[in-house]
């Protein structure tokens, strides 16, 4: 086997891929949540529509977008491969198992929070990305109007909020975990990374969750 296959076929190599793609996706989420705050501009969506038009017509952003999709695919595929390997490492389970109270629920359930995020992602792309960028199925509406109408549906909005809570939990463990996997741990800064991970998970999950809540409340108040 060559160097690449040897390195990334082993568990630690796969985990390095998980860590690097995970951190890349966090950077994307930060950009995404702050860009989407333009939904709150209260200008009928003018600023948001202009921002999304600029983003989808910028060559560099388009290239990064391919990297982003590759990152998403690698992160999910590798995650599922690692999970299935981990399952098979203990074919006979314990009859009685009480996890130590200091271990976090989030760290034990990354596969489940990740799976919900995958389902969410498919629905999310189908609602917005596919009509806006691929099929041109906007029916003359702007992206802002599509967003507003989608979140008028309470079930749709509730699922968004649920998925964003799980995204927050996923990031809560995932961010500092990525640094640990890359070996970037030292008493001087590791507690800072943990705190930064908590802050980022809160900003991203609450930021995104506020959007369906805002539009849904607007719908029922009008």
């Amino acid at each position: 086997m060559n160097w690449f296959a040897r390195t990334f076929n082993y568990s630690i190599g796969r985990k390095i891929i998980m860590a690097l793609t995970g951190l890349f996706l966090v950077f994307f989420l930060i950009e995404h949540v702050f860009g989407n705050l333009l939904l709150f501009a209260n200008d009928g969506g003018a600023a948001f529509n202009e921002y999304s038009h600029d983003m989808s017509h910028n060559t560099i952003i388009r290239i990064v977008e391919y990297l982003l999709f590759a990152g998403i695919i690698f992160h999910f595929v590798d995650g599922f491969i690692l999970w299935s390997k981990n399952r098979s490492a203990r074919p006979i389970r314990y009859q009685m198992s009480k996890p130590h109270e200091k271990t976090k629920w989030t760290s034990r359930n990354m596969i489940w929070s990740g799976s919900v995020i995958l389902i969410f992602l498919v629905i999310h792309l189908k609602s917005f990305f596919v009509p806006y960028r691929i099929t041109d199925g906007m029916d003359g509406k702007t992206l802002f109007e599509i967003t507003r109408d989608a979140f008028a549906n309470p079930y749709y909005s509730a699922f968004y909020v649920f998925a964003m809570i799980l995204l927050g939990l996923h990031l809560n463990h995932g961010f500092s975990s990525a640094f640990q996997t890359l070996g970037l741990r030292h008493p001087n800064f590791y507690s800072g990374i943990k705190i930064l991970g908590v802050i980022l998970s809160l900003v991203i999950s609450l930021g995104f969750a506020s959007m369906p809540i805002y539009f849904y409340l607007q719908t029922i108040m009008n």
Partner: peptide
């Protein structure tokens, strides 16, 4: 050592800390 650990059929670390 990592190659042997993998060949023995141990799982992968998910930084749970247990």
């Amino acid at each position: 050592m990592i190659a042997q650990m993998e060949d023995e059929g141990f799982g992968n670390c998910t930084n749970v800390g247990a």
